[in-house]
C-alpha cells in the first residue's frame, strides 16, 4: 500500500529525514516511536503533502502511484489522512461547514454523489457518537478555543467521518485523559479492516495496549533504526532509546 524508499527531506535547508525506509501493507498497523526531534512529525507531514518540506532524494509509492507528485487534497481524496500533533485553530471557519466541503469534494473526486444536508448531518451524528464528541463542538469554529483533548478528539471524529485508507496519527494520544484514550483507540479499531492501514506515532506504550500494532519502528535522527514486533514497544519503555541507538 505504502512504500517509502531512502527518503530524504529538508526544511529551511536543514536535512531532517536522512534515508528513511518503510513499507506498510493493507490491514497493518505500524507504530513509530522515537526521541523528540527525530523526525516523526516531519515524516507524517511529508506524507500528507506539506509543501514547506522539500524532498531531496528517495521515493514514496502509495497504491502504486508516486505520492510525492500529488497535491495534499489529492492525497486526501485517495484516502490519506493525517491527525495532526498540533491541530490548527481556524477562526471564522465552522467545523461542520468545512467538513461537509471536505467530504463532498472527496466524494466528487471519487465519482460519488455529494451528500445532501440531511444525509450529512445523519452521518455526523453517527460518527460523533462513535467518538463520543460533544455536539456543541461541531458548530463551533474549527478548533478555536478547544481544549487540547477536544482538539485530538476532533481529529479522530474527522477521521471517522472521512474513513481514510491510510490513517496517520501523530501523537493523537498526547494530552488525552484515560477515557479519551480508550475512545480514540476504539475509534481506530472500528475503522481497522483488511484494506485499511494505520501509522501511529506515539511516545507511550499505553496507546499500543489498545491499538495493537503489527510492527513497531524506532526512529532516530531521520531514519528508522530498528523494527520489531509489538513487544519492542515494551522493551523501549523499559530501557529507553539509548539502548537501540547503541545496537543500531
Amino acid at each position: 500500500m505504502l512504500k517509502i524508499t531512502n527518503l530524504h527531506a529538508n526544511i529551511d535547508g536543514k536535512e531532517i529525514l536522512k534515508g528513511l525506509d518503510l513499507e506498510v501493507k493493507p490491514g497493518e498497523v505500524h507504530a513509530i516511536m522515537g526521541p523528540n526531534g527525530s523526525g516523526k512529525s516531519t515524516l507524517a507531514n511529508v506524507l500528507a503533502g506539506r509543501e514547506e518540506y522539500e524532498v531531496t532524494e528517495g521515493s514514496v509509492t502509495y497504491l502504486g502511484e508516486d505520492l510525492l507528485e500529488l497535491a495534499p487534497e489529492e492525497r486526501a481524496w485517495k484516502g490519506i489522512f493525517l491527525a495532526f500533533q498540533y491541530p490548527v485553530e481556524i477562526p471564522g471557519v465552522s467545523n461542520l461547514n468545512f467538513l461537509r466541503t471536505a467530504l463532498n469534494e472527496s466524494r466528487k473526486a471519487n465519482g460519488q454523489d455529494e451528500l445532501g444536508g440531511k444525509d450529512f448531518l445523519a452521518l455526523v451524528r453517527e460518527k460523533a457518537k462513535l467518538v463520543e464528541m460533544d455536539p456543541d463542538l461541531m458548530n463551533r469554529n474549527l478548533n478555536v478555543g478547544f481544549s487540547g483533548g477536544e482538539k485530538k478528539r476532533n481529529e479522530i471524529f474527522q477521521m471517522a467521518l472521512l474513513e481514510p485508507r491510510l490513517g496517520i496519527l501523530d501523537e493523537t494520544d498526547s494530552g488525552l485523559d484515560i477515557d479519551a484514550l480508550r475512545i480514540v483507540a476504539s475509534g481506530v479499531n472500528k475503522l481497522r479492516s483488511t484494506d485499511k492501514a494505520f501509522i501511529v506515532v506515539t511516545h507511550y506504550q499505553r496507546l499500543l495496549d489498545h491499538i495493537v500494532p503489527d510492527v513497531v519502528h524506532v526512529m532516530a535522527n531521520g531514519r528508522i533504526i530498528k523494527s520489531g514486533p509489538k513487544e519492542l514497544a515494551l522493551e523501549l519503555e523499559e530501557k529507553g532509546y539509548d539502548w537501540v541507538k547503541e545496537i543500531a
Binding site: A76, P87, I90
Partner: peptide
C-alpha cells in the same frame, strides 16, 4: 495562514476552496 490552508487541504478541501473558506473567515 499557510498552516490553516494545509490543514484544510489535508482533509480534502481543494486549494481554491480552502483559500475561499479562509478568506471568507477573514
Amino acid at each position: 495562514d499557510e498552516q490553516g490552508l494545509f490543514y484544510l487541504r489535508s482533509r480534502g478541501v481543494s486549494d481554491a476552496e480552502a483559500r475561499k473558506l479562509m478568506a471568507h473567515a477573514f
